[in-house]
Write a protein that binds this DNA or RNA. Structure first.
Length: 431
RNA sequence: GGAGGCGUGGCCGAGCGGUUUAAGGCGACGGUCUUGAAAACCGUUGUACCGCAAGGUACCGGGGGUUCGAAUCCCUCCGCCUCCGCCA
């Protein structure tokens, strides 16, 4: 949620920066509504003041044994006027809110300006981007590798479709164990620097989805249980943010560093393409998330902390990646700055996002009303919030399947995962 | 799922149709006193919005209604507690 005052006064060029990601944005309708709103407030509040004054008079006269019914007519007129003005004001305010709620965060000043992802900038990379033909045995893509693993194929799309629907998948056997070892490894990494681990509810109410920025604009992307007004979380960013909704954090608690493990559920309506078969884009995946609440002046240094943290995890798995700084047009609604870590997928001959690290500045904190009281200052201020994947399992698994495949169809277990596989260092091929 | 009870300021708690502009207490902060502290006493103590200001308006879990007037009456939703039922 943006602060209207910042847009109306164009603080630090806010209007132009907003236009750099949303070219259709115009301040004029907002300014007009706000002017009308102020006028109505002045009018209705002076009527209410008179109403209150007259009401006190009635009380005083009743107390004195005097019959005040002669001024009821005047009160009725005032009251009717107030009701009409109040409803007009409510309508203006609601329209203003509807327009502000869907506006995205203002990009940070150093974000590359472009209206789509072609403007993203590579800022680092790791490892060697080998192509399929560089392998010294016939390279298989992740699907073929997975389906060839013992004891019954590592993935079972056919039966997942039967019990649930298209584009759902299911891990089986040793590949399921490898998936789970990834989860445990990510959790151990994330908690090693003192982050508190949270296992939150996987369903949240729609207020929580509003606070994080998903609702109202991206409602169609979420799975909902409408009978109960509950939504399956698309990322644990949602419950982590809402942990402290409507609360004031003590200064000493910041920066507050949290992590969580949850499945993530996404409808991914209308996004499927042939290049996204298999595990690239699924309706349910596992993710270990890191999340920080910070003071406003330390959020950009915290962003670096989280980026480096996520990179190290991928590097420890020896999986090649590139680090991208997203352009204005590719930012998520709530983000002021985002860095994506994209794993190299030789089977697709492309890069695919395994982690996304964002500084949401005060955008979510305003929607969720999360503040802190700075030092000796009396007035609470909004915190900044940051989130990052560390990491998402499904696409990491794609990269593992392709990079760790062996010539006989087996799969080598990455060194760092062996302890979580009880020392097993290889998944055997189907016989 | 059934029955009942309860949601008032940072906390406790009174108020149950009009001098409530929400009593009183605790806590916190400031002061007096004291070598220092405690105690005692005095004072201060919410948020948001409109306004250049003076000042005004709103807020008693959320929303709606009744009324000239609602913390107070009615409806509805949410949350918490007690008991019963069911259940991993």
């Amino acid at each position: 949620m943006l602060e209207l005052r910042i847009l109306l006064n164009n603080v630090d060029g806010a209007v132009d920066r907003l236009k750099s990601r949303d070219p259709g944005f115009s301040i004029d309708p907002l300014a007009l509504l706000d002017k009308k709103r102020r006028e109505l407030i002045a009018e209705v509040e002076s009527k209410k003041a008179e109403q209150n004054k007259t009401n006190r008079e009635i009380g005083a006269r009743k107390k004195a044994g005097d019959d005040p019914s002669d001024i009821y007519k005047k009160m009725k007129e005032l009251s009717d006027g107030v009701k009409i003005l109040d409803s007009e004001l409510a309508e203006i305010q609601a329209e203003l809110n509807r327009q502000i709620e869907v506006l995205p965060n203002i990009p940070a000043p150093d974000v590359p300006v472009a209206f789509d992802k072609s403007g993203n900038v590579k800022t680092a990379s790791f490892g060697e981007f080998k192509r399929a033909e560089d392998w010294d045995f016939p390279f298989k893509n992740h699907l073929d590798v997975a389906m060839g693993l013992s004891p019954s194929g590592g993935l079972d799309f056919k039966r997942a479709s039967k019990m649930t629907g298209a584009n759902w998948s299911m891990y089986r056997g040793d590949l399921a164990r490898l998936e789970w070892s990834l989860v445990m490894y990510f959790i151990d990494r994330a908690t090693s620097d003192g982050r508190e681990l949270i296992i939150p509810p996987y369903l949240v109410n729609s207020q929580s989805m509003f606070s994080s920025g998903q609702f109202p604009k991206f409602r169609e992307q979420a799975y909902e249980c409408r009978d109960d007004d509950l939504v399956l979380i698309p990322t644990s960013e949602v419950p982590l943010l809402n942990l402290y909704r409507d609360e004031i954090l003590p200064d000493a608690a910041l920066p507050m560093r949290l992590t969580s493990f949850t499945p993530c559920f996404r409808r991914e309506a209308g996004t499927y393409g042939a290049e996204e078969r298999g595990l690239i884009r699924v309706h349910q995946f596992h993710k270990v998330e890191v999340f920080s609440f910070t003071r406003p002046d330390e959020s950009f240094s915290e962003l670096e902390v989280i980026i480096n943290y996520s990179r190290k995890v991928l590097e420890s798995l020896k999986l090649p990646y590139r680090l991208m700084k997203l352009a204005t047009g590719d930012l998520a609604q709530q983000s002021a700055t985002t860095f994506d870590i994209e794993a190299w997928l030789p089977g697709q001959n492309t890069f695919s996002e395994v982690s996304s690290v964002s500084n949401c500045t005060d955008y979510q904190a305003r929607r969720a009303n999360i503040r802190y009281r700075p030092g000796d200052q009396k007035k609470p201020e909004f915190v900044h919030t940051l989130n990052g994947s560390a990491l998402a399992t499904s696409r990491t698994m794609v990269s593992i399947l392709e990079h760790y495949q062996e010539s006989d169809g087996g799969l080598r277990v990455p060194d760092v995962l062996k302890p979580y596989m009880q020392g097993q260092d290889r998944i055997e091929p189907l016989t």
